[in-house]
Write a protein that binds this DNA or RNA. Structure first.
Length: 931
RNA sequence: GGGCGAAUAGCUCAGCUGGUUAGAGCGCCUGUCUUACACACAGGAUGUCGGGGGUUCGAAUCCCUCUUCGCCCACCA
C-alpha cells in the first residue's frame, strides 16, 4: 500500500474504517508525492517510437506561466485540461510527456521589481543595469516558480524533472540561434519608424501588445489660415490636437475638388505660426471628417508614411515619458509654456488656446479605438524610433498552409478564420524592447567599420570586432519575451542541438492547450517558428478553451477582485472537486461561470461527485472484502446474472462513448482527415458519460441489484464479487484522468490491486470481446421498468415508505417465465410484491403500461380515491391520443415511407404498434374506473 | 467599418451528418436518515428550442431575414 495517512487501513481486513465523506486533505498530498517518488510522470526518450522505442510519444507543452505568477482559476482550468489529456494518453500506453516551465516575462517581471524599488525610493537607473538585472534574477530565484509548486496541488502530472525556463542558459542559446539564423536569412532588420511606445514602461511594444480599446474622446475641428490669403481657411479634424506642434503639412485627397486650389500652397500652423504645405495624398479620405488631415510624421504611423512619400521632416515633440518636449528636429516647435507638460494636459491647453484664437471650429464627441499597453493599461504613444523587426510574410506562409492542409487543426473551429485572417494580413514584428530584463539583442556595433560590417549578429558574446579587431558595443535593447516563448516547443527539447535525445524523441508535440487571447502572441508564432527552424509544425492540435467568469459574466481577475483561488477550492473540497467541476462544466471553447461568493454552490458538482465515488468504494470494500476475487476472464459467462450482463454491456458502451468524446489520439505521418478535423476533445461529454456510468448505472442500479447476492455465500457471490470489482476497477480507470486522487486512493484498495501499482500508470479500459447476452440484458431492462413504474405509483399515492404493496403483472407465459424469478428484486428495490397473471383482475386499480406488452396493475384499495385515479388516467390517455395521432399522420405521409431511411421507418412503425396497444389498455382502464 | 460566433428549462450549457414523447448539472417542489453515501435516495414540475419567412413527408437541427448579445481584426485622422 503506497498511501499513508489516517484513512489507509492497516490491513485489508478492516476496510470499513473509511470515513463516510471523502477527506481530500488527508490523502491528496500523500498520493501526489507517491506518484512523484515512483516517477509516474517522468518521460523516457528512449521509449519513444521516434527514437527507436515501442511507444508513440504524446507531448503536451505547458503554456509557461509568468515566473512571478500566482495560480488563479484560469491556470487551474488550463492545466486541468492538459492533465486530463496527458493522464489519458499515459494510460493509453503512450510515452506521455507534459513539459512544464515558466516564462521570464520581460515587462511584467521588470515592472514587479521596479515597484519594489519604488517602495524603497529607488528607480532602476539608481541601481544601474547590471545591478538591476542581478536583483531581478535573485528575486526570480527566490520567489519565482511558486505557481509550479501550486500546480502539484491540483494534481498536474507534469514531468518536473524537465522543468524549463525561458531565460535559462539553455534556452538563451536557442534564442540567440534563432535570432542569428533569421538575421542571416535576412528576416531580421533594423527599422526606423513609428512604433507603439508605452510611456510608463518606457519601451516599445509589438502591435499585439498595444491593445485597442474603444474609447470615448473628442474630434476637434481646427481652422488653419492659408498663408497668402488669411480669409481662406481650411479645417482639419483631429482627435489629438496636441500633436499639432509636430505637424509638417496638411493633406487632402488629390481628387477632392473642394481643396484642389490649395494644393501646393501653404497654410499657417496655429500657435506656432509656421507655414506648412498643403499636400495631395490618397491617404486623406474625402468622406471622413473634413477631408483634411494634419500630418505629424513622428507621432502617427500613417502620417510617417505620408511624410516619407513627400520627403517631409519628422519633428519629435513628445518625449519618452509622454511629455511635450523638443526632442529631435523640433527646435522652436514646443513653446516654453508647453514644455514638460504631459500630453493630456497639453491637449487641454492647446484646445483652450485654439478656442481663444477663434480657430477651434467645433468639438464633437467621438468614439474610437485607442491603443493601451497590455501590461499597464497606459495609453500608448506612437513614437518614431529605431527598432528590430522580424519580416513575417515568408514565415507566415507555411504556417498558414499547415492549418489549411490539416497538418494542424484548431479547435473550436471558429478560431481558424481568425487565425487565417491574421496570418494573411500579418505585419512585421517589433522584437526589441527598451528594457533591462530579458534576452539582450545579440547584435554588436563596431564604430570603426563601414556598413554592413559595423553591425554583427553573433551566437557568441563579442569582445572585439571580427572585421577590424577593434572594440565593439552590444545593442542596449532586449528581445520581446515572446521571442523566447515562440521557440518553446523546440527549445525545451534541446534545440538547436540536433542530437538532443528529447528533440528526436518528442518533437513535434501533440496538443497545445491554451486561451484564445494568446493565439497571435504565442500560438501562431510557435507554428511559424516550427516551420522555420524544424520544418514541421510544433503540434497537430490547438485547443482553445474558454475563460473563467463570474456570475455577471466578467472575466475573473485580480484587479476586479472577483477571482477564485484554486487552492482555496482544493483545501475546501479537494483537487478532484475542482477538476471535475471545471472539466464537466466546460463545453468546447465555452466559458465557465463560477460564483466567487459561493464556492460551496459553484463546486457542488465536483464535490458531490468525489464523495459519491468514495462511498461507492466504501460499499464495495465493505461488501467484497479482502478475499481473493476472480478475474472477469475467469468467470464462466453462463454463470453471469442478468444484472451482470447488463452492467458489463453498459461498461462497454461507456468506454466507447468516452473514447469517442476524447477523440482520436493523433494522426501519424499524415494530416488530419476531414472527419477527424473536429473530432474529440469534448471533455465535458467524456466527464458526463463516465459520471453517468458510475453513478446512474453502476451505483443506482447494479449495486442495488446485487446487494443480496453479495451477502449470500456461494458460487453466485463469487460471480457478483468478480463483476463488481471488474466494473468498478474500469470505472476508476475511466475517471482517473479527471479525478486522479480519489480514484487512485480507491483503486489501490481494491482486492485486485497489486502491491506497488499505480492507477496513474494503469491501462485504459478496453471494450471486451464477445457480445453480451442480449436476452439477459433486455430482461434486466424490463425489470428496471417494472421497478420504476411501481415506485412511481407509490410516490403518486403517497404510500408510506415502510408499507409493502402488491401489484399484478399482466403478461404471457413466456415473459412470466423470464421475469418471475426476479420478483424478489422488485420486492426489495420497489417494496412491491409481484403476482404474475394472464389477465387483468377485476376491480379498480392503477395501471401502468410497460413496453413489451406488459402491464403493471396496482390495486388501489386503501391507497387512494378512484376519482383521482380516473382523472389521472384520462389525462394520460388524452396526451397519448395526441401523440399517436401525430405519429400516425407521419406514417401515413407517402413521402415519409419513400424517402426516410428504412431503419427510421421501422422504428416509427414499432412505436406505433406499442403506442396503440397502450392506448387500448388505457381506454379500457378509463372505462373500468370512470364508467 | 470588416469578419466570426451565439441565442434551447430559473441559471450554466449538451443536443455531432434533419427522424423516439428535446436532455444534463445546479436550483426548485414532495417524500425518506431504506444498515455506502442527506455532499444521499425515490418521485416531480418547468421549454410556442430569440421573432418572422422559406426548403422538406418531417426542422431545435438546413437556408433567408430581423432582433439581441459576445468575440476577433482595423490607420479612417
Amino acid at each position: 500500500m503506497s498511501i499513508p495517512g489516517p484513512a489507509a487501513p492497516e490491513s485489508a481486513s478492516v476496510p470499513d474504517e473509511l470515513p463516510a465523506q471523502y477527506d481530500p486533505a488527508a490523502t491528496e498530498a500523500a498520493i501526489y508525492s507517491a506518484w512523484e517518488t515512483a516517477g509516474c510522470f517522468t518521460a523516457d526518450a528512449s521509449r519513444s517510437s521516434l527514437a527507436g522505442g515501442d511507444r508513440d510519444p504524446y507531448v503536451v507543452l505547458m503554456p509557461p506561466p509568468n515566473v512571478t505568477a500566482i495560480l488563479h482559476v484560469g491556470h487551474g482550468l488550463n492545466n486541468a485540461v492538459q492533465d486530463v489529456l496527458v493522464r489519458w494518453a499515459r494510460m493509453r500506453g503512450l510515452e506521455a510527456l507534459w513539459m512544464p516551465g515558466t516564462d521570464h516575462a520581460g515587462i511584467a517581471t521588470q515592472n514587479v521589481v521596479e515597484k519594489q524599488l519604488a517602495a524603497e525610493g529607488l528607480s532602476r537607473s539608481d541601481l544601474g543595469r547590471e545591478a538591476f538585472v542581478e536583483r531581478t534574477a535573485a528575486f526570480v530565484e527566490r520567489t519565482g516558480g511558486v505557481i509550479l509548486q501550486q500546480l502539484r496541488a491540483i494534481g498536474a502530472s507534469a514531468d518536473w524533472s524537465r522543468t524549463a525556463y525561458t531565460f535559462s542558459p539553455e534556452l538563451s542559446v536557442a534564442v540567440r540561434e534563432a535570432f542569428v539564423r533569421l538575421y542571416e536569412r535576412g528576416l531580421i532588420y533594423r527599422g526606423h519608424r513609428v512604433i507603439h511606445w508605452c510611456p510608463r514602461c518606457l519601451t516599445s511594444l509589438s502591435d499585439e501588445e498595444a491593445e485597442s480599446r474603444d474609447t470615448a474622446g473628442s474630434m476637434y475641428h481646427i481652422a488653419y489660415r492659408t498663408e497668402d490669403d488669411p480669409s481662406r481657411t481650411i479645417t482639419v479634424a483631429t482627435t489629438r490636437p496636441e500633436t499639432l506642434l509636430g505637424d509638417v503639412a496638411v493633406a487632402v485627397n488629390p481628387t477632392d475638388e473642394r481643396y484642389a486650389d490649395l494644393i501646393g500652397r501653404n497654410v499657417v500652423l496655429p500657435i506656432l505660426g509656421l507655414a506648412i504645405p498643403v499636400i495631395a495624398d490618397e491617404y486623406a479620405d474625402p468622406e471622413f471628417g473634413t477631408g483634411v488631415v494634419k500630418i505629424t510624421p513622428a507621432h502617427d504611423a500613417n502620417d510617417f508614411e505620408v511624410g516619407r512619400r513627400h520627403g517631409l521632416a519628422a519633428p519629435v515633440v513628445i518625449d519618452q515619458h509622454g511629455a511635450m518636449a523638443e526632442v529631435m528636429d523640433s527646435a522652436g516647435r514646443v513653446p516654453k509654456e508647453y514644455r514638460g507638460l504631459d500630453r493630456a494636459d497639453a491637449r487641454t491647453r492647446i484646445v483652450a488656446a485654439l478656442e481663444a484664437m477663434g480657430q477651434l471650429v467645433r468639438r464633437e464627441p467621438h468614439q474610437h479605438g485607442v491603443r493601451h499597453c497590455y501590461r499597464c493599461e497606459t495609453v500608448v504613444e506612437p513614437r518614431l524610433s529605431d527598432q528590430w523587426f522580424v519580416r513575417m510574410e515568408s514565415l507566415a506562409a507555411p504556417a498558414l498552409e499547415g492549418v489549411r492542409t490539416g497538418r494542424v487543426r484548431i479547435l473550436p473551429e471558429k478560431w481558424v478564420g481568425v487565425y487565417e485572417h491574421w496570418m494573411t494580413n500579418i505585419r512585421d514584428w517589433n522584437i526589441s524592447r527598451q528594457l533591462w530584463w530579458g534576452h539582450r539583442v545579440p547584435v554588436w556595433y563596431c564604430a570603426a567599420c563601414d556598413p554592413p560590417n559595423n553591425v554583427i549578429a553573433s551566437r557568441e558574446d563579442l569582445e572585439r570586432c571580427p572585421h577590424c579587431g577593434g572594440p565593439v558595443r552590444q545593442d542596449e535593447d532586449v528581445l520581446d519575451t515572446w521571442f523566447s516563448s515562440w521557440l518553446w516547443p523546440m527549445s525545451t527539447m534541446g534545440w538547436p542541438n540536433a542530437a538532443s535525445a528529447d528533440l528526436r524523441a518528442f518533437y513535434p508535440s501533440d496538443v497545445l492547450v491554451t486561451a484564445p487571447e494568446i493565439l497571435f502572441f504565442w500560438v501562431a508564432r510557435m507554428i511559424m517558428a516550427g516551420y522555420a527552424f524544424m520544418d514541421d509544425a510544433p503540434f497537430h492540435t490547438v485547443y482553445l478553451h474558454g475563460t473563467a467568469r463570474d456570475t455577471q459574466g466578467r472575466k475573473m481577475s485580480k484587479s476586479l477582485g472577483n477571482g477564485i483561488d484554486p487552492l482555496d477550492v482544493v483545501s475546501l473540497y479537494g483537487a478532484d472537486a475542482l477538476r471535475y467541476t471545471l472539466i464537466a462544466g466546460m463545453g468546447m471553447g465555452a466559458d465557465v461561470f463560477l460564483d466567487p461568493a459561493d464556492l460551496d454552490r459553484s463546486f457542488a458538482t465536483g464535490r458531490n461527485f468525489a464523495t459519491k465515488l468514495w462511498n461507492i468504494g466504501r460499499f464495495l470494500l465493505r461488501n467484497v472484502g479482502a478475499g481473493e476475487v476472480q478475474a472477469i476472464s475467469a468467470v464462466d459467462p453462463a454463470q453471469l446474472g442478468r444484472a451482470d450482463q447488463w452492467i458489463l454491456q453498459r461498461l462497454d458502451i461507456a468506454i466507447r462513448e468516452c473514447d469517442r468524446a476524447i477523440g482520436p489520439v493523433k494522426p501519424i505521418g499524415r494530416a488530419w482527415s476531414a472527419e477527424e478535423q473536429t473530432a474529440g476533445l469534448r471533455l465535458n461529454e467524456y466527464a458526463e458519460t463516465a459520471r453517468r456510468f458510475v453513478w446512474n448505472e453502476m451505483a443506482d442500479w447494479y449495486l442495488e441489484a446485487i446487494k443480496s447476492r453479495l451477502l449470500t455465500p456461494g458460487a453466485d457471490q463469487e460471480v457478483a464479487r468478480a463483476v463488481l470489482v471488474h466494473v468498478f476497477d474500469n470505472a476508476l480507470r475511466l475517471l482517473h484522468p479527471i479525478v486522479p486522487f480519489v480514484t487512485e486512493a480507491l483503486w489501490q484498495r481494491l482486492p485486485s490491486h497489486v502491491e506497488g501499482a499505480f492507477l496513474a500508470q494503469a491501462s485504459w479500459p478496453e471494450v471486451r470481446d464477445g457480445a453480451a447476452a442480449q436476452d439477459a440484458v433486455s430482461a434486466f431492462e424490463q425489470l428496471m421498468q417494472i421497478i420504476e413504474a411501481a415506485r412511481r405509483v407509490r410516490a403518486e399515492y403517497a404510500v408510506a415508505p415502510g408499507t409493502k404493496i402488491r401489484a399484478f403483472v399482466v403478461s404471457d407465459a413466456t415473459s412470466r417465465a423470464v421475469l418471475e424469478p426476479d420478483a424478489p428484486l422488485v420486492a426489495r428495490m420497489a417494496r412491491t410484491e409481484l403476482t404474475f397473471v394472464e389477465r387483468a383482475p377485476e376491480g379498480a386499480s392503477s395501471a401502468v403500461i410497460l413496453p413489451g406488452g406488459l402491464q403493471l396493475i396496482v390495486p388501489l384499495e386503501g391507497l387512494v380515491d378512484v376519482d383521482k385515479e380516473c382523472a389521472r388516467v384520462r389525462t394520460e390517455l388524452a396526451a397519448l391520443d395526441r401523440q399517436l395521432a401525430a405519429l400516425r399522420a407521419r406514417l401515413a405521409t407517402e413521402g415519409f415511407i419513400t424517402r426516410a431511411k428504412p431503419e427510421v421507418v421501422e422504428a416509427e412503425r414499432e412505436k406505433e404498434r406499442e403506442w396503440s396497444g397502450r392506448q387500448e389498455q388505457l381506454a379500457r382502464k378509463v372505462a373500468q374506473l370512470c364508467g
